[in-house]
């Protein structure tokens, strides 16, 4: 299992860099991972809105939300989501939210 070192901590990730243990996630994990995902500086309020929405949705339903639902519930345009997370809602936002690699969802 590949490992990822971030901010002095070691995390087990899959071959695409998705966290393998949801309980190892912390806000610091997301912030430390952000620069590797092409996000400069501190995560903004909107970044956190999306990350927290994805985590809450996952906790309730066990899967990541569909993209359209995510856009509507967070009131974000698709283009804006890609501006915030250059690698997109699946490869970027879900990764920072600590989810395993989504299949059939964002």
């Amino acid at each position: 299992m590949p490992e990822l070192e971030l901010g002095g901590n070691t995390y087990e990730v899959d071959e695409d860099g998705f966290l393998q243990q949801l309980d190892k996630w912390s806000p610091q994990f997301a912030q430390d991972y952000a620069s590797l995902e092409g996000i400069a500086g501190e995560l903004t309020e909107d970044h956190w809105k999306l990350i927290n929405y994805i985590r809450e949705y996952y906790e309730e339903y066990g899967i990541a939300p569909m993209i359209r639902k995510l856009c509507k519930d967070c009131s974000f345009k698709l283009k804006y989501i890609y501006e915030m997370f250059p690698s997109g809602p699946a490869k970027g936002a879900c990764k920072l939210a600590g989810l395993s690699k989504p299949t059939g969802c964002v």
Partner: peptide, 11 residues
């Protein structure tokens, strides 16, 4: 006019 699109895959 601009269209921004993305897609999801399923296995």
């Amino acid at each position: 006019m601009e269209l921004n699109l993305t897609f999801q895959t399923t296995k």
